[in-house]
Nucleic acid binder design. Structure first.
Lengths: 230, 230
DNA sequence: TATCGTCAAGAGCAGTGCTCTCGGTTTTGA
DNA sequence: TCAAAACCGAGAGCACTGCTCTTGACGATA
């Protein structure tokens, strides 16, 4: 038993080291991760990597899963760090946490929210961790509706869309008026649109004060979903 | 003259054919475009391609430029096809045109708005064509402010941001209250966030009626920038 | 102790971008 | 008109990639 767990332990250590080295390469060389380069950095031969990851895509998948978890942790922790009644503060904290994580890990963010890798299909395991940030946002809305602090929007969704959004609500296990859920999705879309624009260089050269710009746009979306001022 | 223009003409024809074949490969194989595969499809040897494009990145750049122009054409044409006074109709038309083009050309859209290719730096020629869609949107806002149909938002931007956005306004040669320009940028961000989410599979499995969803979110942003109803 | 699973190494295959050289054609200019 | 210059395609070759297979050694297990 001890012997077996010892071997298993060094194996787990190898896997961790490979992922760490790969993450380092990802940060410098971008998404085209070279297995051979990773192996070189570890003083190994490229074929030895295949003892631990059956293919390059599996290594990428492992990195993607970890990145989703890290982003989810960051967003949820930021939300949890604010007084539950301060809906707007929680909204801003969640937005900021996502951006901060993305700026600190641009290559991994690009892996998650950039163009999908051509031959690569995201496994189903990723959908749960990937939905943690949007779930955090709609959680804020749910809390607001529950204690009457947040008034749902006046408009009603017309028919084909209303049932779609309602079904999405039961899928996410949230109880929100469809019109409000749709506005929440606009906030979610805006969040990652903002980060992608900033990270992918679409606002290069303009807007030197990025933090202020991001916070202001965050506030616009907070208004859109109906969060009360302070 | 005739002789010279004859050779120049077959050269231009070759360049066009290479781009066409490359675009076809882009659609099937994604962003990792293979020069050798393109050459094979043309019955040529890979080195012959280098007579026309000094490197693979230059071929990619040519495709990117054409894609930007095509997208810009589509958006501007859609806007131009609506009665100038119908601000909301123009807004919706521009949004829809961008999405329609992206759905018809997913690989090229990913090239423009996906994660930047690692070793590749977008040349400066791309910034002008890339700004045509957002310029179309702010053009609608300008027209609305000019004829008094659109009331600027009540809020005022606080200081570091206000000058940033104002400078951006002069850069774009538009005369808008900074707060309104910021809201316009939110609409621009939302547009490409929506398209990216849809195209990159982030709303797979939910929302079967994508057109209705897109139109509704477009309307939310029209409200945000203050476009009058119909 | 003997056996079986695990491991790293190496050779090798097919593919990539890119460079260079070699003939042949076309255009140019005196 | 005819030589010089420019252009073009083919081919070989380099360094690199992901991946497969085989070989030999090590360590845990029964």
């Amino acid at each position: 038993m001890v012997a077996h767990s010892l071997r298993a332990r060094v194996r787990a250590g190898m896997i961790d080291e490979i992922k760490a080295v790969a993450r380092r390469h990802l940060a410098t060389d971008g998404a085209n991760l070279s297995l051979r380069a990773v192996a070189r950095d570890m003083g190994m031969v490229s074929s030895a990597i295949y003892r631990y990851f059956p293919s390059r895509d599996d290594l990428l998948t492992a990195l993607i899963l970890e990145a989703y978890e890290a982003l989810g942790d960051a967003v949820e922790a930021a939300d949890a760090g604010v007084d539950r009644a301060d809906l707007r503060g929680r909204w801003h904290a969640a937005f900021r946490a996502a951006r901060t994580w993305a700026l600190a890990n641009p290559a991994e963010y690009a892996l998650l929210y950039g163009s999908p890798v051509p031959g690569y299909a995201a496994p189903a395991d990723t959908v749960a961790p990937a939905s943690r940030p949007p779930l955090t946002l709609v959680g804020i809305l749910c809390d607001g509706v529950a204690d009457g602090r947040l008034d749902p929007p006046a408009e009603e969704l017309s028919e084909p869309l209303r049932t779609d959004v309602a079904e999405l609500g039961v899928l996410l296990a949230v109880d929100l008026p469809p019109a409000l859920l749709a506005r929440g999705m606009a906030g979610w879309t805006q969040l990652f649109g903002l980060i992608s624009f900033e990270l992918f260089g679409r606002i290069n050269g303009m807007l030197p004060h990025r933090d202020e710009y991001f916070d202001h746009q965050t506030g616009l979306m907070a208004d859109l979903v109906g969060l009360p001022a302070a």
